[in-house]
Amino acid sequence: MTKFEKSSLLLMLKVNGEEMQALLEGPHVTLADVLRNKLGLTGTKEACRCGECGSCTVLVDGTPMLSCSVLAVAVRGKEITTIEGLAKGGELHPIQQAFIDSGAIQCGFCSPGMILMAKALLEENPDPTELEIKEHIGGNLCRCTGYIKIIEAIQLAAKRMGKGAA
């Protein structure tokens, strides 16, 4: 077993617009671990812990990252957005609303990652094709829905957000 010196460190993170601090056992602690177990933000899910399923996706300065495969110390000073940070003042983000309206959420375990992936996609490409959507969420696994309603939800969100901007 690997031996390592106990070297607790206090980490400051900016999560969902708030400065937060967490006491880590060492520099090896992942971002997912900090979010879920130190900050109580359990909306971020972990299903594989090896970067294969996409459940733990969060946005770091707007870019989707697998929080199970990112060290918390590596994102110091960056803006982290988790699923808890999407709704503003009780008002759901249009993507969240589209997922609900389309029946894209069954067990819901993949939903936080899927919704954040969709947000990153639509910010970059407001009117994606079906194939572009599939390629973008191709690394996020879902066992319940067969993806069809998730794709429909992202299309619906694109349509609604496009209208809002126009």
Binding site: T42, I83, Q97, G103, G108, F109, S111
Partner: peptide, 18 residues
Amino acid sequence: PYKDARSKATGAAKYSVD
């Protein structure tokens, strides 16, 4: 819309693992 979809869309839903 499904009854519990909102809590799942916002990350509020608690699973056993949480």
